[in-house]
Design a protein around this nucleic acid. Structure first.
Lengths: 377, 377
DNA sequence: TTGAAAGCGGTACCAG
DNA sequence: CTGGTACCGCTTTCAA
């Protein structure tokens, strides 16, 4: 078992260095100036060598490179470069809640994957900023970054927006926080949900229940009224609930999940399935919640879609699920890429318009004709 | 549809500012010096007000706060603070491959969740650094951070380690890259896998197959020899393969998956199940791969565990799966937290020893007696 | 093609 | 408790 302390790491490093150099006391930390001195050139010239920007004679470049490797120079210190240039090559990604919570949802993972794909290509790193960061006392704006994406659809307001905007950082969101300074890529949550309900009504369903995402940070899960659901803090929860009502869902059959997981979906769906007059169809605000509903149905001996139709929202990959979930497909990876494109433009200083992203109703094998109408035998 | 450009955002901001200030030409970007000047105090004093470090008279603090809000000051610029203090409050998390690939595995997600939990509490943000970063031309070390976690178990070497170490950054890994300067938290991959095989042999299995994780970046998936598997580039793949052989697995029945997904597991398992003399048990190097194997078995009409026993590795939550997977549980969230604790100590400059993390064989409902021995009827 | 010098915006000494 | 002042390490004009 090896013990390594930063001190040891540094000192062993210095040993290696002093073997290569002939100076008596090499500086604790090698700077570009040290390299330039050793190479016999000006700091500015050495800088050009590393950035590859200006014209430098091959021989000079060679001298600098040799000096650098002799001194064990790690390259220009990014902190100094950032201060000087103002650019950090970092994009912040802000979440409501914890990372574990956010990434439990394949939708978020796919979205971030698509986003990252594009920003990687431009050499940006993603700085994850869970809500707890704020709780730790540090405002978001105390991290250095070139822009921020508000990723986990969520709260309408965020106190950090002021400070971030004051810094002149481009801000991008997917519906929240609601603020003029945040460029948005939204989806028609309301219309798409209404469309799902209509699809089910077209199949003959009349008692249609709704499983919502959490209504607000720390909100109590369980049965909720139509008014509570359509007044949710979280924009997407709210809009989908409104769409559910628009489409003709049953207002008495709404249950909120505690979080975006299969188990939470099963728990919320259970409340509806165990009602006196249970629904014959369930519209869930996310695919994971829908899979939970299907699980809950299974536990009650209900066949999907014969006894119960279930629809989701998002269009995530669920390779373990043998059916094809009826869902409102928002192609999360592609949406992430689109956000990446918008962000890249913003980073280049180009004007970017808020816009909407398409969602497509994708009928699968989990919705079918209402059972009570046609007795299958 | 609202158009917002960074320029507009800034100018509207300045409008707001000039409404509050009486100076004719406020500086384009407000600095601490501006605030101090307006408050009639020294910059150093203003600095103390924001950092809350030194003793400042309440009246003075009040003056500074007012000046700041009048000028629309966003708080000390993190870039400057970083250069001066040398601390960035950012921990890099390096992955082999893409983020989408890494986060497709619930094991990685849970691990990162646990890690983040601890570092959040200390006010650190996580900077995700997919491998593609390197491809974009920027070395890892061109980002400013206080330490780096090598998260996705992977390649034995990484060119970036030299530069990162030269910067004196604490480095933490879960087995890779293999380097004295990286503190490691490893698990007994080899022993744990051997234990699983022995468990199966105890159940009467004699033809035991193995589904491995990818052998190397860009390695060809499919049937592989025992030599290839036990010489894999990726340390964990390699060690688990060795354990498989140690425990008495069948050397001819090894297939490598193309990535860490259910579908890849199903594909690799299919190759083994379709062999002339198929295995009666499958030891998979990850839980996701195991679920894929179970899927492949189902497609062939094989019942688990009656016709085929399947074991996984990791111990992830799979709420959608109705059984309980037999697995080597490495409690990913807790492992992440332990890594967080080690990292926190490293960041405090404390010495941290490399160590091992426990893995427990957790028998579930997916392994049972070998079918050929006891004909159940 | 190279060198000199002026900051980027704070922080942390140290003197008063 | 407050002010003055050296830096942190690099990038970028501007001249030579």
């Amino acid at each position: 078992m090896v013990i390594v302390t930063p001190e040891q790491a540094r000192s062993s490093d210095e040993t290696a260095r002093s073997r290569a150099t002939d100076e008596a006391r090499p500086p604790a930390t090698v700077t570009l100036a040290d390299v330039a001195r050793r190479a016999g050139v000006a700091t500015s010239t050495a800088s050009l060598v590393f950035s590859g920007r200006g014209p430098v004679a091959p021989a000079t470049a060679e001298k600098v490179a040799r000096a650098a490797s002799e001194l064990g120079y790690a390259g220009p210190d990014p902190r100094a470069a950032q201060l000087r240039t103002g650019r950090t090559r970092v994009v912040g990604v802000s979440y409501d809640g914890t990372l574990a919570g956010a990434f439990a949802d394949p939708y978020q993972v796919a979205l971030l994957g698509g986003f990252s794909e594009l920003l990687d290509a431009e050499g940006y790193g993603l700085l994850l900023l869970p809500e707890s960061q704020g709780a730790a006392g540090l405002p978001l704006s105390s991290h250095s970054m070139d822009a921020v994406l508000f990723a986990m659809c969520g709260a309408l307001e965020r106190p950090d927006v002021d400070a971030l905007a004051a810094r002149g950082l481009p801000l991008l969101g997917t519906g929240a926080p609601l603020d003029d300074r945040v460029v948005q890529l939204t989806i028609p949550d309301r219309g798409a949900t209404a469309e799902i309900v209509e699809h089910l009504r077209g199949l003959g369903h009349t008692r249609i229940g709704h499983v919502t995402m959490p209504l607000a940070a720390g909100a109590r899960p369980g049965l909720v009224s139509a008014a509570e659901a359509s007044g949710a803090d979280y924009v997407d929860t709210r809009d989908r609930a409104r769409g559910f009502l628009d489409g003709g869902g049953t207002p008495e059959l709404i249950a909120a999940a505690s979080d975006l997981t299969v188990d939470a979906g099963a728990a919320a769906a259970s409340l509806l399935l165990d009602a006196d007059q249970p629904p014959t169809a369930l519209v869930c605000q996310s695919d994971l919640l829908a899979l939970g509903a299907i699980k809950a149905a299974g536990e009650r001996g209900l066949a999907v879609p014969d006894d119960l139709s279930v629809a989701g929202f998002d269009g995530v990959e669920t390779p373990w699920f043998s059916g094809r979930l009826t869902t409102a497909d928002q192609r999360p990876a592609e949406k992430g890429r689109e956000l990446g494109r918008m962000m890249a433009a913003l980073l280049r200083g180009e004007p970017v318009a808020s816009g909407t992203f398409d969602v497509r109703l994708r009928p699968g094998t989990t919705t079918g004709p209402a059972a009570s109408q046609f007795v299958a035998e």
